[in-house]
Every structure is written in structure tokens, then in C-alpha cells.
Amino acid sequence: MKKASVNQRECVACGVCEKNCPRQAITIFHGIYADVNEDLCIGCKRCQKTCPASVIQVVLKEAAS
């Protein structure tokens, strides 16, 4: 199944993805980077489309759930 994957090294922790995720699958870890809860993520790509820094990719994860 496809899941969102954040390049946490370059994430600016702006929170745009968190706000746009329809499943509340993203939280901003202590203002440092975005963290995806793969159990909640449905791979809709809304975060990928809205991330201003373009550091999210929705990719195929091996048997994530």
C-alpha cells in the first residue's frame, strides 16, 4: 500500500501537511519535522501536493499493514 514518506532532514515543520491530511495521520514532532502515522495514512497524496517545501513523497511501502 502507498504511504506518505517525509524527508525529515529537509522538512521545515510548517504544518501545512498536518492541516491538509484528511486522516489526521501527520503530527509535527516538537516543531522539528512532520511524522506520518502509517496506520492512518491512506496514501491520498494531499500532503505531497500541498507541502511548500516539497519534501513528501507518497511511496509504496512493503506490507505496511
Partner: peptide
């Protein structure tokens, strides 16, 4: 919200958070 990528306030608050909670993981 591309301004937020290099907004000085955003960079500062992230830097403070990193100092407070340790290095970026992963």
C-alpha cells in the same frame, strides 16, 4: 505557503526546537 520554507521566524522557532529537543531524527 512557500514563504514558510525560508521565513526567518519559522527558521528560528525550528532551530530553538531542535536545540531543545535534540537533533533531527532520521
Amino acid at each position: 505557503r512557500s514563504w514558510c520554507v525560508y521565513c526567518p521566524m519559522g527558521t528560528m522557532t525550528q532551530a530553538i526546537s531542535i536545540l531543545k529537543f535534540g537533533k533531527k531524527a532520521k
